[in-house]
Amino acid sequence: MMKRVTCLLIFSLFFLHGYSQAPVVKQGTTLKYIFSLHGQTVPIEFSVLHLTDTLVLGWKIRGLAGGTYIMVPAALQHAVKMNFIQPSPDVAINLKDDETFMIISTDAFRKLEKEHAFVYDNTVYNLKEREGNMLHVTAKDETTEWWILNNPDFPLVCRIKGSPFGIDCSLNDVK
């Protein structure tokens, strides 16, 4: 029941931002998540600070601490890993060429569209269903589920459930 309520809340956000169209994520867009880590929850706000070639995501926790995640063009195009490095205040985290954070690479998204599956972190994710503007994928032989924005220009991971790292999250607002 909670799963359906959470999905309804997420979908209603996207319908408010253009009815049945996926929201446009651009420079200046703010994404508000709730992260759950081993039973503790924390709200984290991400802002798209730069999006021309390199993606720079700024983050803030309760307005007290902040920093950035930096993803280079090679990562945005070809990455095969999701990096969940813990943010450090006032630090710019430069992800490797094969890593992204809260977004899958263009190559992975294309495979998902074409083959209904992709590989990230040596895990096969299969398309379970399309839920409005979301692509719901499940990890083969694992409990992990992701909901990915059906947007080839910005395939944002909007929700993670059952992560083997103990890190789950849910997008609550897009501005």
Rank of each mutant, 00 (worst) to 15 (best):
I61H: 08
W147G: 00
G58A: 04
T144A: 12
M102F: 10
I93C: 10
S20E: 06
V137M: 04
L171I: 04
L37V: 11
G162Y: 15
A108K: 10
L127C: 02
R110L: 08
D107L: 08
I44Y: 03
L112C: 07
I10L: 11
K175S: 01
Y125L: 00
D53I: 00
V48W: 12
I160D: 10
Y120G: 01
I93H: 06
T138I: 11
L149P: 07
V25P: 09
E113W: 13
R62F: 15
F109Y: 08
D97C: 04
S170C: 07
N172R: 11
C158V: 10
V91Q: 03
V174G: 09
L156K: 14
A22R: 09
S170T: 12
D153M: 11
Y69D: 08
T144H: 15
A74Y: 15
D168A: 14
Q40P: 11
G132Y: 12
P164T: 05
G63A: 09
L127V: 00
T54E: 11
V174C: 10
F101C: 04
V56A: 07
K81M: 13
T41I: 13
E99W: 04
M134Q: 02
K128Y: 08
D53C: 01
E129L: 07
T143N: 09
N83R: 05
T41K: 13
K60S: 02
D53M: 01
V42I: 13
N126D: 03
W59V: 01
F101D: 03
F154N: 07
R110F: 09
R159T: 08
T41A: 04
